[in-house]
């Protein structure tokens, strides 16, 4: 390696490391603030290491903010509830997405029923209708009619609104499973549904793992839909909704900064942990969707 190449290498690493620092610093500040007493946060400080590290913020946020400050009402900050709500919602969304996506994808990819093409393209075209969040009002009105304008309704709606992309991904995966396997199952007397249950479902484990992670993450991170569905029902707030509510309507605003940062940690730490453990599944899921989408 000559001198010129050597320096360009150094420059390259400096650039990459600079981006690493920019990526991590906002997270590190959140982590550090969550261990600082409120007074220390209010004084400000670019120092990352807390002068007087404490776990009190976590305890207060978790136990309804009992000693979290004068302006904190007991109901307003209950991150134990919020965390449980987030878990419930994300789990329901994940399970619903898995069942629905795998069944629907199988029926579309392997079935030969009349209307198959038409229905499949109708599903896919919903991916391209750029309505986004502008249709929330009629959706919540509909949900209210069947008493589902709550956390569970939010979970169910999220199954359907992200359905098309997952469907596309799964259909693509099923295409790679040889049809000869189905044929031999049929000869052995398996019906269409039994073939799905006994043969195809076990074979589609890898794509199901990816979809499980992605749908769990999407629901865990969602804000607008669960916010609208739990409007005025503080005890049903998932973490995202609870955190933003604490910031916007927390009364004394900045006085609850420490609780807010601890609450933020409840939201981001599980995601970061899952990501670091299973990062391969996330990456493959996202890039597979990109290539086929």
């Amino acid at each position: 390696m000559n001198k010129k190449q050597h320096w360009s290498q150094v420059f390259l690493y400096l650039f990459l490391i600079a981006i690493v620092v920019i990526t991590l610093v906002p997270l590190l500040y959140t982590v550090s603030a969550s261990f600082k007493p409120n007074t220390e946060i209010m004084q400000g400080g670019a120092h990352l290491w807390p002068k007087d590290p404490t776990l009190q913020n976590y305890i207060d946020a978790w136990e309804m903010g009992s000693s979290g400050g004068r302006g904190v009402s007991r109901r307003a900050v209950n991150f134990a509830d919020y965390t449980v709500n987030s878990l419930i919602m994300s789990t329901i969304t994940m399970i619903g997405t898995l069942i629905l996506t795998s069944m629907t994808a199988y029926a579309f990819q392997r079935g030969q029923f009349p209307g198959r093409q038409f229905l499949y393209w109708t599903f896919l075209s919903t991916m391209f209708i750029s309505a986004g969040s502008v249709t929330i009002y009629p959706i919540i009105q509909l949900a209210a009619k069947v008493d589902l304008n709550n956390l569970y309704g939010a979970a169910i709606v999220q199954v359907f609104l992200t359905g098309a992309a997952n469907l596309f991904l799964t259909v693509g995966y099923l295409r790679t499973i040889s049809k000869e396997i189905d044929e031999s199952a049929k000869i052995d007397g398996c019906s269409f549904f039994q073939t799905y249950l006994r043969i195809i479902l076990p074979l589609s484990k890898p794509i199901m793992a990816t979809i499980a992670l992605m749908s769990f993450r999407a629901a865990w991170n969602a804000y607008l839909m669960p916010m609208v569905f739990t409007l005025g029902k503080t005890s049903q707030y998932p973490l995202t909704v609870g955190i933003v509510a604490l910031k916007n309507f927390g009364g004394e605003g900045a006085s609850q900064y420490n609780l807010l940062m601890a609450g933020t940690m409840f939201s981001i730490m599980p995601m970061i942990t899952i990501y670091l453990i299973m990062n391969k599944y996330f990456v493959s899921g996202i890039t597979a969707g990109a290539v086929k989408g």
Partner: peptide, 17 residues
Amino acid sequence: TVYFLPSMLSVAVMGIM
């Protein structure tokens, strides 16, 4: 791994950060 990490987090929560 590091560069992709922020994409894992909630947009709303990140807004607050």
